[in-house]
Amino acid sequence: MGRLLRWYPPSWRARYGEEFGQLLLADIAERPRSWRRAADVAANGLLARCTSAGLTSHELPPLEQVRCGVATLCCALAAFVTFGVAMLAQLAMGWQWATPRSAPAVAASVAMSIAGACLVLIALSGAVPVAWHAAVTAVRRRDGRLMRSAGLMLVSGTVLIIGTRHFQNGWPGTGGTGALHGLVPAGIAAFGWASTLSVSSFWVHPALLGTLPAAELAWMVLSPFAVLGLLAGFAGIVRRLTLPHWLLTYLSRLAMAAVVAAVPFLAGAASWVLATAPGQPGLFRPGLINGAELATMALALVVALRAAIGVRHARSAITEML
């Protein structure tokens, strides 16, 4: 029974867990084995998880909806940026050594660079006030759960930055002679490359994986956990903090701006992956991994958009109440 209950989010279990457990026990006593019951609990548990992330039409109380929606939005956009940076890093590396002979690759590089810079600026504009508010609240309230989320975020961020700084020294773009090798500054391109080393087609080619140095391989395994830790910490802070109304409004507006900025980024990426003519030099030739990156980015953007719509509805409800 415990296994079935784990499909549901903690907040749902805290409210309904005990009584739902009693109903499950009675049902199991009548029908000891039932795949339909297991499927029903799994489907509804996942739905409850989507609801608690602000992703369903069945909305939470408005303030909770804004809080959960903003957290989900940030996580979806972070996933978008992670895969987008991996793709942009590949193009930036290509520019170090050659100039693409295809208009979509040029347009994609320019659109993704500008939109990517906007996304980073928007992320920083949101992260700074949240971090400040979280630090002040954690110190004043001595909230253990908040401190754990902040600690997770801090440790994950530190691991990510130190690891990336270390591995960016091995960036293959160093010393490039391409005509436009300054499109993305080399330091930033190298940082993007090293932080997203795990987004690689090497995973489906074990023979190639075996040729990598052990430390690089370890970083490819560890870095996604650092990114996840960073996101989980941030989401935990946003969901546990009682953010003032103005800050929630500011964050939700920033998030909408990020969704808007993500569209040209995705359009640029799609034009490169889907419309590039064959015969491009090395890194400008899109591969299967780029298709997977594009699909993931599109999915993340859909999730972000759904969360943004939920946040907008909830904000309207709060404004009406005020």
Partner: peptide, 9 residues
């Protein structure tokens, strides 16, 4: 089914 009942509840 239990999941459906509690989602509706």
């Amino acid at each position: 089914a239990p999941g459906t009942l509690y989602e509706a509840l």
